[in-house]
Design a protein around this nucleic acid. Sequence first.
DNA 1: TTGATAAATGTAACCCTATAACATATCAAC
DNA 2: GTTGATATGTTATAGGGTTACATTTATCAA
Lengths: 162, 162
Amino acid sequence: MDTIGFGQHDHSSCMRAALAAVENYCTEHKLQFTPVRRRVLEILLARHRAMGAYEILDTLRDEGLGSQPPVAYRALDFLVSHGFAHKIERLNAFVACTHPGQDHTPAFLICRNCDAVAEAHAEPSRGMLGRAATDTGFSIEQAVVEALGLCPDCRKGAPACA
Amino acid sequence: MDTIGFGQHDHSSCMRAALAAVENYCTEHKLQFTPVRRRVLEILLARHRAMGAYEILDTLRDEGLGSQPPVAYRALDFLVSHGFAHKIERLNAFVACTHPGQDHTPAFLICRNCDAVAEAHAEPSRGMLGRAATDTGFSIEQAVVEALGLCPDCRKGAPACA
DNA sequence: TTGATAAATGTAACCCTATAACATATCAAC
DNA sequence: GTTGATATGTTATAGGGTTACATTTATCAA
């Protein structure tokens, strides 16, 4: 199972691996992995949680990489449109993808207590939703699947699982 | 199959039925179905599509029922929290529930061309998402399931299906 | 029926999220 | 090295949502 995001793991190596994968993908597909785009991805990877665009922008501003909203949104658009990051609609926030490069429909498990986010796979064309779509003649192109609840740590009674 | 929302149907009777169901539910549960709350639900039922809070507020203002955002948001909170309406996260908009009173996890089919929305049932605890949750020890309390694509009418080449 | 409590409304001000528009710079390829 | 496309800098503004507080209306028990 490749659900990750809860529990401990070797963070610096997961970050390096993701960056390398994105770098390769961009080279292969002739995409410009510019400093701002790279830095935004790094920020998302480092925090390893859902971040608002303005929170990201604060960091960019501190580093002199840009100070106006479009700077952050443009970088995020690039990352999201190529599957390097995802938007969590429920939080109006963004997370780095945990398996960039692979074609996939992400599903998220969002902790309502500590805002931790884990990414899993969804198969929108299967199950009830797929059946409803087929029955009505609706063609699914994209899906938002986000579950809210309590992550393992917060269930264990941690008052606020940092 | 109880996916509805695409295609024709007897609209005034579907609206009356929904209002009656909500009225009953409120009486039984001693909830105050006040004029503003009722009117907001009526507006959502009448338009039969996803509407932004400010769009609803415009109508309320025209009718002298309130002019500030909290008026609309409070009514919507009431409707959503009791399952009489749902929020479409992807659109930052709201729709009337098509089967109020019944306990359910809604899933939506959203047309990217004409913004029509159909409500279906989801079963978040089943399928891939449920497995991912079980595996990681995450407890799902709520789910957002929204598919984007083309509705039957728009697929048939209608340049903009009303 | 009155008084206490809880629930709902009115209103002003504000915060967060996101995009439009336009000028400038940089890149990629011929 | 010129050109066309792509990316960035910046200003202003649109859109969505909440806080806070005063006021009113409903509920229910004494």
